[in-house]
């Protein structure tokens, strides 16, 4: 009998250990870090521990607006500076967002295929963040604007020419309601 109880206790311990290792029994010790800056996105309701794939706290693809489109912002090679010739495009997006207070925006940063994929992902994010900063400068609330870098993963033109590269270096505007 004692042996049986001891066996049960050991099995239980082993099960707890296995659960802990497999991650099924993850317990939350305190809240996940939420040190977001004020002008950045609202993260209320974002559960980093959620095991599902729902876009908690992010804009859903369902609410994507497709009937209004703005031309993408073009960038120089290996640069996230917004050229003077491109600012008018951003200004027209800002005007539209000012007139439509319920509109939210995801800026998608893209790169050409030159350079490493990792670096391009960061560069694409920098491009999106630069456009976002410009919009904030024009008075649009930061909480209405998110960023999404695709790096070099989603070229518009799959060819390997300077023209294709110029087309692929861009910041696109994805509007959501």
């Amino acid at each position: 009998m004692f042996r049986f109880i001891r066996w049960m206790a050991m099995s239980l311990c082993l099960m707890i250990c296995l659960l802990a290792v497999s991650g099924c029994g993850v317990t939350r010790r305190g809240k996940p870090d939420a040190g977001f800056e004020d002008d950045l996105l609202s993260v209320e309701g974002v559960d980093q521990l959620a095991g599902d794939y729902a876009l908690a706290g992010r804009f859903g693809e369902d609410n994507r607006i497709t009937d209004v489109q703005f031309p993408p912002v073009a960038f120089q090679y290996d640069s996230f500076q917004i050229a003077g010739s491109e600012t008018a495009k951003i200004t027209s997006v800002a005007e539209y967002m000012r007139r439509n207070a319920d509109i939210r925006l995801v800026i998608e940063g893209h790169c050409d295929e030159r350079g490493s994929r990792e670096y391009n992902l960061s560069l694409g994010e920098h491009r999106a963040l630069a456009v976002r900063a410009y919009l904030i400068g024009l008075g649009i609330e930061g909480s209405r604007i998110q960023t999404r870098s695709y790096g070099e993963e989603m070229p518009v033109d799959a060819r390997h020419s300077p023209d294709a590269y110029r087309t692929n270096r861009r910041g696109e505007f994805a509007l959501y309601r």
Binding site: G23, L41, V46, Q48, A50, Q146
Partner: peptide, 18 residues
């Protein structure tokens, strides 16, 4: 997890997680 086949999202902050 290649043994169980389970996939979990472990970082989904606004912006880039990479």
């Amino acid at each position: 997890d290649l043994v169980s086949g389970r996939r979990r999202r472990i970082a989904a902050f606004p912006g880039l997680n990479a």
